[in-house]
Design a protein around this nucleic acid. Structure first.
Length: 589
RNA sequence: GCGCCUGUAGCUCAAUUGGAUAGAGCAUCGGUCUACGGAACCGAAGGUUAGAGGUUCGAAUCCUCUCAGGCGUGCCA
């Protein structure tokens, strides 16, 4: 089914078109009402339209209502205030629609969005030379969630292409190759034996040599040049170091429940051979200029501190290429080769200017035509308790592995306290789901723009807008099904007994039917916190229902079944939504 | 200097992008209290939306200025 907003708008649209033939696409602008006194949904567009028509808004609203037929789904619409139209959904209609949603376990009654797009989501993209640290956490979490939501919304998983633009081609690798040759020449001559137990230590040792020894430094530069010139020996060692590094990154992804595979990786090295052609093409298109020895593109509207045109530098004065060059190669590849309709970049807000320039350049070079949407999803920084970028006490980056381990440890303590009798392996599994879920949910549940303070106690607090609260609501429902020894298949064979009477039942049902509306909005606006908010409210509505409406102890058999169906659909929606957030549910906690 | 972002209850954040009396969660106070899992529920209190103007039926949201903080601003990514 379409979102209720869309149903109402589409019913009103032809009436508006007829009443205002000269206004292009007049819209009813239907929104959920904030206050129950104004019904379930309200149309806000009449007043703006009346303004344009220079007519009385309430009279216009009356004309709309006179012609509008929504009697199958709503009580008679009311005109209120300066010209709102308020809609109250009929229980019978809600029952029918919710029944349909229950009978559709794969999509929960959510329509596929009508314009399935081919989308590239660029996220994660760590530097493979080092272990992932807290600086990578947001892009990784948010990008994965955006990809998951698009996969569901467009219902064409193969059209959603994850791209991890890893750093695997720079000086750090020249350092690592040189260090490996120096310290373990036996591995360097047999690269397939390269094993790096501690990637961070390996990098640190190489960096120390680099900083303290001039000969080493020169060798590292040489190795980097050799790499870029595709020297066979160097390339062979590089390949195995990258493979080892990738194992470390993959371990983090697995732990975090991030859907990223080796095939999704297309980093600097993959575009390295395209870079000369990027510059040449810009020159051929007459948009390349030399300035202070560097090859630059000057784009309209970008100024530096002196107020002079700000260049996008694509080739340094020493001939080397930069990340701008690689990003341009990538954008061209994604638009032309992958044929993406939307290209989404999930990076730090500090890169905003960079992407504005990259996008402008790609447009000017006609690598991304106007019908390809280029979208930067910027997000703020993770701060420590001192409101400064999150670091360890000694001022180093917090390793993602350590952070995730601590999350699990802390969650395990809580599980031990609450449920000491569970088998140890189950406690471990719960701690994993709760700890990782808490970290991810904390990251996703606020508006992306703006920094947030990393606070263990708040994210793992078992009350409030947190992952554990949602997981708890899910676990409680599972408990009902265990206690009542309910067979879900048998239950779902009786969906026609659904009946909504109690106010808590109606509130819950209305909320369940808004799932598609939320999905549609998030697919369009790429704001995951709208989904976390929705799920939190769902859990709250359920808790209220749960305390006020006995399920297994209800008076009539039909009420029991009906309420079990509500429970089932709530649990199913919670699990589905949490899965879109990359967060696991557990049956007990 | 210029540009971008942020400023909402004591704290952390919302407000479906211009809609009705700005909502949640923590914390505080009060209630439910042998419970289909109390990791819960119900209620109270808490606001000049940083400040000042403006736009209009209507502004936290749009415009102008001011204040405070963060980030960026040519060869790092």
């Amino acid at each position: 089914m379409k979102p209720i907003i869309d149903i109402l708008e589409q019913r009103i649209a032809p009436i508006l078109a007829q009443l205002a033939p000269d206004i292009p696409n007049p819209s009813a602008i239907v929104k959920p009402s904030q206050d129950p006194r104004f019904g379930d949904y309200q149309a806000n567009g009449i007043m703006a339209l009346a303004k344009q028509l220079k007519t009385n808004p309430r009279e216009l609203a009356q004309q709309v209502v006179d012609q509008l037929n929504v009697s199958d789904m709503c009580e008679p619409p009311e005109i209120a205030g300066p010209g709102f139209i308020n809609f109250r959904l009929l229980p019978a209609w809600l029952t029918q629609k919710l029944t349909q949603a229950i009978q559709d376990p794969d999509r929960l009654g959510v329509d596929t969005l009508s314009d399935p797009k081919k989308v590239v989501v660029d996220f994660a993209g760590p530097n493979l030379a080092k272990e992932m640290h807290v600086g990578h956490i947001r892009s990784t979490i948010i990008g994965d969630v955006i990809a998951r939501i698009l996969e569901f919304g467009y219902n064409e998983p193969n059209n959603i292409i994850r791209q991890s633009h890893v750093g695997d081609w720079g000086l750090p690798f020249g350092m690592l190759v040189t260090y490996l040759r120096e310290n373990t020449p036996e591995a360097a001559s047999n690269p397939e034996n390269i094993k790096i137990a501690d990637l961070e230590e390996f990098y640190r040792a190489a960096k120390q040599r680099f900083d303290s020894d001039e000969t080493f430094k020169q060798n590292a530069y040489k190795a980097t040049v050799a790499l870029h010139e595709h020297d066979q020996d160097t390339l062979e060692i590089w390949k195995h170091i990258v493979a080892e590094s990738r194992i470390h990154a993959q371990a983090i992804y697995d732990k975090m429940n991030i859907k990223l595979r080796v095939e999704d990786e297309r980093g600097e090295s993959a575009f390295s051979k395209d870079l000369p052609d990027v510059v040449k093409s810009l020159a051929d298109a007459n948009i390349l200029q030399e300035s202070q020895g560097a090859q630059c593109v000057f784009l309209d509207g970008f100024k530096n501190k002196e107020g002079n045109p700000l260049p996008l530098i694509v080739q340094k004065s020493d001939g080397a290429y930069l990340y701008a060059t690689t990003d341009l190669a990538a954008i061209r590849f994604r638009a032309k080769q992958l044929k993406a309709d939307r290209i989404i970049y999930v990076t730090d807000a500090r890169q905003k200017l960079h992407f504005q320039m990259i996008f402008a350049c790609a447009r000017q070079a006609q690598w991304a035509p106007e019908n390809v949407s280029l979208e930067h999803v910027p997000f703020g920084s993770v701060l420590g308790p001192d409101n400064k970028p999150f670091k360890t006490r000694s001022g180093e980056n917090v390793k993602l592995k350590d952070l995730l381990d601590e999350a699990t440890q802390r969650a395990l303590k809580v599980v031990e306290a609450k449920n000491p009798d569970l088998p140890p392996e189950q406690k471990q599994q719960i701690a994993q789901a709760v700890g990782i879920g808490a970290v991810k949910y904390a990251d996703l549940s606020n508006n992306l723009v703006g920094d947030y303070v990393f606070d263990w106690d708040k994210m793992l607090a078992m009350e409030g807008n947190t992952a554990p609260y949602l997981q708890y609501a899910y676990a409680r429902i599972q408990s009902i099904f265990r206690k009542g020894d309910i067979d879900t298949d048998q239950l779902l064979a009786n969906t026609d007994v659904l009946q909504l009477d109690a106010p808590e039942e109606l509130t819950l049902a209305k909320h369940l039917l808004r799932y598609g509306e939320i999905i549609e909005t998030v697919v369009r606006d790429l704001r995951p916190h709208l989904l976390t908010n929705y799920l939190f409210e769902l859990a709250q509505n359920f808790s209220s229902f749960y305390t006020n409406c006995p399920v297994l102890k209800a008076d009539a058999e039909s009420t029991i079944t009906s309420r079990l169906l509500l429970c089932h659909q709530t649990a199913h929606t919670l699990a589905h939504g949490l899965n879109l957030l990359g967060i696991k549910t557990i049956k007990q906690m």
